[in-house]
């Protein structure tokens, strides 16, 4: 059911990512939802946050990264499935997990671009240097991978491309309030807290907060890292299964 990931597939995954970068990075939906929107809301919340900005910045960075990566996944996969060019990938001698990884990598790389744009906006407002700089780099890289895998997986669940952004936003926007960016998870009612634990953004926000501010709300940083790793691997595997199942 699950393909073996060979070195050849990893190399081809990078080729897929390189192709996607050339093909989709300048597409209007990618730019608007993946860079302009996250940068704009990050700036808006920081300006509005005043002296509380330092508290919400970690969450905003994670959220911006989340929008950046998932927008790229939506643009590349849903569009390709719509015009039929996704089938071309299925004709190449590459495993389904290789394709899933390739699509994840292209979203990841775009996420890095989006992150850079966000950091340019955020850095002037960070009063102290991050408490754990190296840990922050690791968290952001892992977060970008996890969000990319999440976006890729969701993209394969969407049947009607015209609904893409509506579906993506109906998943992404509630997360803003559930994943501890503005409201601490510990203060959420139990049912919402349980939902928060099911959402990948929660772990990214918790770990980012620890890396920048040196504190966390409910999930210890090591656990967040481990869970992000597990979620990423699981999502890539599920995507490869989903790709196999798209074959009629």
């Amino acid at each position: 059911m699950i393909d073996m990931l060979r070195l050849e597939d990893i190399i081809k995954a990078f080729y897929i990512a390189k192709k996607d970068i050339k093909e989709y990075y300048l597409k209007p939906p990618t730019i608007s939802w993946g860079i302009v929107f996250p940068v704009a809301f990050t700036l808006a919340f920081i300006l509005k946050g005043g002296h509380h900005a330092q508290e919400i910045i970690p969450g905003l960075i994670a959220l911006a990264l989340f929008f950046g990566t998932t927008s790229m996944a939506a643009a590349s996969i849903v569009f390709e499935r719509k015009i039929g060019s996704f089938e071309r990938l299925l004709l190449f001698p590459v495993s389904y997990i290789g394709i899933a990884l390739g699509k994840t990598l292209s979203s990841f790389m775009f996420g890095m671009v989006s992150l850079f744009a966000t950091l340019v906006v955020v850095l002037p407002f960070i009063l102290n240097i991050p408490t754990y700089s190296l840990f922050l780099v690791a968290v952001l890289i892992l977060s970008a991978l996890m969000f990319s895998a999440f976006g890729v997986f969701i993209s394969f669940l969407i049947k009607d491309p015209t609904n893409t952004m509506m579906i993506f936003n109906s998943i992404r926007l509630p997360m803003i309030f559930l994943c501890g960016i503005f409201i601490p998870i510990s203060s959420l009612p139990l049912p919402l807290r349980l939902i928060a634990f099911l959402l990948p953004l929660t772990y990214s926000v918790e770990a980012t907060r620890f890396a920048i501010n040196g504190n966390y709300d409910v999930v210890p940083p090591i656990e967040s890292i481990l869970l992000m790793l597990i979620i990423t691997i699981l999502l890539i595997l599920l995507t490869s299964i989903k790709i196999r199942r798209t074959i009629p």
Binding site: E8, K18, K19, E23, L26, I83, G84, S85, F92, V94
Partner: peptide
Amino acid sequence: GVVQDISNLYMELSCYDNLMFCAEMYG
């Protein structure tokens, strides 16, 4: 090699880049 009944190469890529991508993917 497969040529489908729809022209489904990559719209934003040049002729050269499209063929180069296929060459990479076919190893």
